[in-house]
């Protein structure tokens, strides 16, 4: 043992000094480099993991939104088609109604026109009749006026004679 100690110059003071050296290295490295770096790396790892999770969630949301969008668009298309069809039907009904109404109106108008025409005609006929009558009377009066005077006198004479 002694020869070992003398050969290698083993000195417990140097051993302790070297142990202290290592202890200083351990403490300084741990406090100044390893601990803060590990903390930072962990934070970064968590951030990256969080970011990836967010991206995954966003992708899922995007997929769902796209699906919803497609569904809504498809539904809207169907609804639009239905609305169009309904509108078409309603328009057809309305058109038919309007056509019927127009027909009725036209019929009414024709009927009332006919009636007016009839009444006008009747009026005109009446007026014509009256005119004719008055003309005939006038003509007759005129004709008679010339002959009546002679006849009247003769009749009057006759009547007076008979009486």
């Amino acid at each position: 043992m002694d020869s070992f100690i003398t050969t290698f110059h083993i000195d417990w003071k140097i051993i302790i000094a070297q142990a202290i050296n290592f202890a200083i290295v351990l403490v300084v490295l741990y406090l100044f480099a390893l601990k803060p770096l590990k903390k930072l790396m962990k934070e970064r790892e968590e951030k990256i993991a969080g970011g990836l999770e967010d991206a995954r969630c966003n992708a899922e949301i995007l997929t769902l939104t796209k699906k919803e969008y497609d569904e809504i668009v498809a539904k809207a298309k169907i609804e639009a088609h239905e609305i169009f069809q309904e509108g078409k039907k309603e328009a057809q009904v309305k058109k038919d109604e309007m056509m019927a109404q127009a027909k009725t109106d036209v019929d009414h108008m024709i009927a009332s026109g006919k009636k007016t025409l009839e009444s006008e005609k009747a009026k005109m006929v009446e007026e014509a009749k009256k005119e004719i009558v008055s003309l005939v009377v006038l003509a007759t009066e005129k004709l008679l006026a010339e002959q009546t005077d002679k006849n009247f006198d003769q009749k009057q004479i006759k009547n007076i004679k008979n009486s």
């Binding site: 290698f8 110059h9 083993i10 000195d11 140097i14 051993i15 302790i16 070297q18 142990a19 290592f22």
Partner: peptide
């Protein structure tokens, strides 16, 4: 290259 140092490290 000094046994004192390697011994210290080994013991630790």
């Amino acid at each position: 290259a000094d046994l004192n140092m390697t011994l210290a490290m080994g013991v630790l």
